[in-house]
């Protein structure tokens, strides 16, 4: 029998041990999705031949998503006025720092790629809309077009970096058993890819594009399932703390959410649907992508929250 009695009734210390609320999961989710969009859109654009009107605009989703994510991150800062401090230092040991800088890389690269994706008439329209920035837009696109391929490579690279980072941010915080797994990086990356794919699939794409995305999404989902399995095995075979952490997901407070939202609704079901769609046995609907997105958000919410118990 053990009685533990901590003489510290503090709203500033103890509730704060539960450090992160909804903002960080949202930030990780949006960041991951952006990463997915950057990678997949680039690959689609690599294809020769006709592009759907939607695909021409979709690369802009990346910077938009990242901005939304950064907004969430900013909301979580307790000392908002000092946000600029992120950019007066680069601390290579700190994923937070990595993240801050990667996010800065995302903008130029993804924007330039997006510009190259537009056809001249779309670009012209955009430039006209951009008022004073019109010139810059034209100039930038002009500069980017000949380098489109290289830029897309860069976009893929930065995208992968961003995707990995969203997982590594947690996995370096060794204090929390659930997070201290090197697999979180890859896991969040593939999850990011599949949510990215899901987002794109929500738009009116060419059948071929749709087909490719669905395939990649299936791959991503497959990889995600494997990584999840390894992740859980790793925990279960780890120390007592890791054990307890695994328990949280498999059976404990988050069991239902984890199995229901993440594994079944977020991975298994959409995988099945996409298989059928791929076999042309089912008319493609927004159902599968929607489920994937929900699952992706749930995964991050559960890992972030459960990790702080």
């Amino acid at each position: 029998m053990t009685e533990l009695d901590v003489a510290r009734h503090s709203h500033l210390v103890d509730p704060q041990l539960h450090v992160w609320g909804w903002e960080i999961p949202a930030y990780l989710f949006l960041g991951g999705m952006a990463a997915g969009v950057m990678v997949l859109a680039s690959r689609l654009l690599d294809r020769p031949g006709e592009r759907s009107r939607a695909l021409r605009w979709l690369p802009f989703a990346a910077p938009l998503l990242v901005s939304a994510g950064m907004a969430a991150l900013f909301l979580d800062l307790e000392h908002k006025l000092f946000v600029w401090r992120f950019y007066l230092a680069f601390r290579w040991t700190s994923p937070m720092s990595w993240g801050a800088w990667i996010l800065l890389l995302v903008y130029p690269v993804s924007l330039l790629v997006a510009l190259t994706a537009l056809d001249d008439e779309q670009a012209g329209w955009l430039a006209d809309q951009s008022g004073p920035l019109g010139r810059a837009v034209r100039a930038a696109r002009g500069w980017a077009l000949p380098r489109a391929f290289a830029l897309r490579r860069a976009n893929v690279a930065v995208g992968i970096g961003l995707g990995l980072y969203t997982g590594i941010l947690l996995s370096t915080l060794g204090a929390r058993a659930l997070w201290s797994s090197a697999l979180l990086g890859p896991l969040f990356l593939v999850s990011g890819l599949s949510t990215g794919a899901a987002l794109l699939l929500l738009f009116p794409l060419e059948a071929e594009e749709r087909h490719l995305l669905a395939r990649w999404d299936l791959l991503a989902i497959g990889a995600e399932l494997v990584l999840l399995l390894l992740f859980l095995v790793g925990l279960a075979s780890g120390g007592a703390a890791a054990h307890a952490a695994a328990g949280l997901l498999l059976g404990g407070r988050f069991g239902a959410a984890f199995w229901g939202l993440v594994v079944v609704a977020g991975l298994a079901v959409p995988a099945l649907l996409e298989l059928l769609e791929a076999r042309r046995l089912l008319r493609p609907t927004a159902v599968a992508p929607a489920l994937v997105l929900a699952g992706g958000l749930a995964l991050r919410w559960i890992v972030v929250t459960a990790g702080q118990l």
């Binding site: 704060q16 992160w20 000392h79 000092f82 060794g174 204090a175």
Partner: peptide, 17 residues
Amino acid sequence: RSKCTGCKACMASCPYG
């Protein structure tokens, strides 16, 4: 404190609260 953004990464990483 004049460099602290309150991002709480340090808190998340301290095993001792």
